[in-house]
Design a protein around this nucleic acid. Structure first.
Lengths: 347, 347
DNA sequence: CTGTTAGCGCTTTCAT
DNA sequence: ATGAAAGCGCTAACAG
């Protein structure tokens, strides 16, 4: 609630200048065929002279659609979510929709207020990366507009969502380490209450079971929330009597913390992790990363949402859909292995 | 323009259920003191039962303020701009304003349409990272709402802006290299048409002049647009008969491309550059980075804008202001120099 | 304490 | 080819 502007010229003003009614101005601006050429020109001239712009708020009220969708992410500072936002933006733009942005800052308690606010602003739909496990407020929002979840699944809600192959990706990356003969792999994970944390641990575990290796519980650290906590946990692991011989990290920030710890302690260990990141290829570290297209999550989410908007009136509401974005394992070697070579050879 | 919803219950509906007029509902929702407790309760009950939410579009029309500001960045995929967006978001939220997001994708030709669209949506103000040097459309937008520029200055426009110390930062980082005795420093720059490109080159040059070293024009490469072009330019420089002995890069993506080229060619060279980035401290490269708080640019821009909104009605429009966000040089050594040591010692 | 009237800027419908 | 009236959902201003 801030200041208000004098708002500027209205259709009426334009009409007065062009010596027609507001209605005719409306017709001209809508490209209605039934307007004489002379009138058109006068109207356009007046529009130009006044710098007139159609008031979308008034149109929304009259037409019943705001032309906006809401996007709520947990942390715009994480490249993962800003890419996701970019993907949403891209598809939304293609459909003439604007994006009203919300950032929960991983604070689940702020999410309901944010979402209610977006609903109040008449967004036609919502794309949400839910910050917590309580999703009651999402059910509330769904009474008003379609909601699509991104990166994390619905909990007790029947709605569309877009996920990455958390389980599969974690299993595959872990399997790579195991295939190299690693048997003491530490697990550095985000809070298991988060779906991604749980799934990725499951994948880590499954890979072990498949080759008959028992994960050592002493090497499993969960609840890491950022690079700093991951760095400390890594130092802790390195100090054990029986330290790990490799690391698995469940997201980009954790990988970065672990890598920093290794660097500072002058240790080199194979590291596997979820999420690729800038310069992962030039660290000179044996790195196995689960990579995927974060933009694509946003694009798919936007498509699901727009699908819902377009089938809006239908009597039979379509069943909710779950789309999965594929992951792929990317490997970077230590410099000795496949390191610096000829320029054009680079991956 | 997509589907429209049936919109849901109105104040009238709520009133009917609570057996009062819409006006009374409005009063209750506004916390107007003059309403009996009994009525309040009935209204709240009805609101709850219907899942009623106040239609902000209608309010905006009536009250004359949309409660939204527009933000247009050039590339949300660049952490720099997503942090900027985060800063804007933060301050906007504090003032009860929502952020309507636009991404020009560095395509200057898309910017006018984006901005007109935001103006149509009745944003109360705009924060723009201008993509090109033509800013006519910004002047147009300024007829409707206050505009604050971020990261790049106005060109022939009288408006507030927030900049980083481009010149100063570049000069200081370059001076660091020169102080180490480097005399053949290559310059890897973005297009000089961009303000930041020009300013940073100016700083680079000034630092040379100050110590009486003549920059070698053969080592100056401009017009680099991403990591890939920077990588190629770096290979090119390394292949010269008289190659550079150090590199200066004008932004994060260029630094990354240069670093990739060095890595692939197995060369180690001191690198200086604008913008800090993740893991810059663990590359084991002598790195001199101009670091600054990208969030702060967004926050300051939002504050300038909100200031304008609040002094809105004033007869005497305040003079336009230019805020500068400070930079600071961060240095990382090669591992041999100050590298891996004890954990708690890390910067 | 509560209701009625009017109108924010626009567009749909019906006249002319 | 153009205009007048009505109303989208809400609230300020005025009754009562």
């Amino acid at each position: 609630m801030t200041a208000r502007r004098g708002s500027g010229p209205t259709m009426h003003d334009v009409g007065k200048l062009a010596q027609v009614s507001a209605m005719t101005v409306s017709r001209v601006l809508k490209d209605d065929p039934g307007v004489s050429e002379a009138t058109r020109e006068r109207v356009f001239a007046a529009v130009d002279r006044l710098g007139y712009r159609r008031n979308q708020t008034a149109r929304s009220l009259r037409l019943g659609g705001s032309g906006m969708i809401g996007l709520v992410v947990t942390n715009l500072a994480n490249p993962f979510y800003s890419r996701l936002a970019l993907g949403v933006q891209e598809v939304a733009t293609d459909y003439g929709l604007r994006v009203l942005l919300g950032n929960s800052g991983e604070r689940a308690d702020r999410e309901p207020g944010l979402i209610d606010g977006l609903v109040d602003h008449q967004v036609e739909g919502l794309i949400v990366v839910p910050a917590g496990s309580r999703q009651q407020h999402l059910a509330r929002a769904m009474r008003h507009v379609p909601v699509v979840l991104a990166a994390r699944p619905p909990a007790g809600l029947d709605t569309d969502c877009v996920l990455v192959e958390d389980f599969h990706g974690a299993r595959e990356a872990t399997a790579c380490l195991l295939a190299e003969g690693q048997t003491r792999i530490a697990f550095l994970g985000n809070p298991p209450a988060l779906y991604t944390g749980a799934e990725r641990l499951r994948g880590f575990w499954a890979a072990h079971e498949e080759v008959g290796v028992e994960p050592d519980n002493a090497l499993i650290r969960q609840g890491l929330v950022d690079a700093a906590t991951a760095e400390r946990a890594t130092f802790d692991l390195l100090g054990l009597d029986e330290p790990p011989t490799a690391l698995f990290c469940t997201n980009n920030r954790i990988s970065q913390g672990a890598i920093r710890a290794l660097y500072k302690s002058g240790t080199t260990l194979p590291v596997a992790g979820f999420d690729d990141f800038d310069l992962s290829d030039v660290l000179g570290l044996p790195l196995t990363l689960v990579s995927y297209d974060a933009d694509e999550i946003g694009r798919q989410a936007a498509r699901l949402l727009i699908d819902r908007l377009e089938q809006d009136g239908d009597a039979a509401p379509r069943a909710s859909r779950r789309v999965t974005v594929p992951t792929r394992v990317v490997r970077h070697g230590a410099p000795s292995a496949d390191g610096p070579g000829h320029p054009p050879t680079g991956a």
